[in-house]
Amino acid sequence: MATHFEMELDNLKSIIKKIGKLAEGQVSEAVKILLQEPEAAEGKIIKKTENKIDKLDVKIDEICQSIFALKQPVASDLRFIMSAMQISNEIERIGDLSISIVKKAKNIKEKHDLIVKFNIADISRQVELITAKTNICFAEQDGKATGEIFVLNKDIRNSCEDAIHDIINEMKVNSKAVVSGTNLVIVLKHLERISEHCTNIAEYVYFTVNAKIIKHDKFDDLRSED
């Protein structure tokens, strides 16, 4: 039978899964709006969900604070609670960035042409994918998935850099593209940041499972240990 404390930990885990799913939904919604998909809502849902994420983020902090004060967790429990606080923070940032993407997307004229030209749809899909994989990684506490997420993040970073490079070149020769191009660069930077936050979450899962902090390690270092 689970102890009272184990039930508290399970409750915390399920709240993080919930906030993770909400953030995943935010990213998808932002991508839909960015790619001008017909079913995309005009940002009302995303704003409402953002409030839910903020409330859950605060709730997670309160639960962690109370566990630290009252239960003095150690070993794997301690690592889980430490990670929970950090992960919640990363998720909340993913939510914020999704909102920013929606705001910037509204300033991009002739969006469809630019999206096709600079491969934005593919990058967006990859960011959706890394967000989903990160949620699974947390839900299953799968430290091994970290490597896969590292690789995906690297691909996203490279694709964003390439696209930004191309957009800047386009702006140099076509002054009409400057406003939209600038907004698109910011959107790409946001997508890249979302991917980084996902990678951070995977790192915290790795820490929880393996008791090793890999925050500033390169993926190759990690792979050589396995």
Binding site: V74, A75, S76, L78, R79, A211
Partner: peptide, 11 residues
């Protein structure tokens, strides 16, 4: 011991 014990029984 209190952050990453080696043995499951200790944990």
């Amino acid at each position: 011991i209190f952050t990453k014990p080696m043995q499951k029984q200790t944990e």
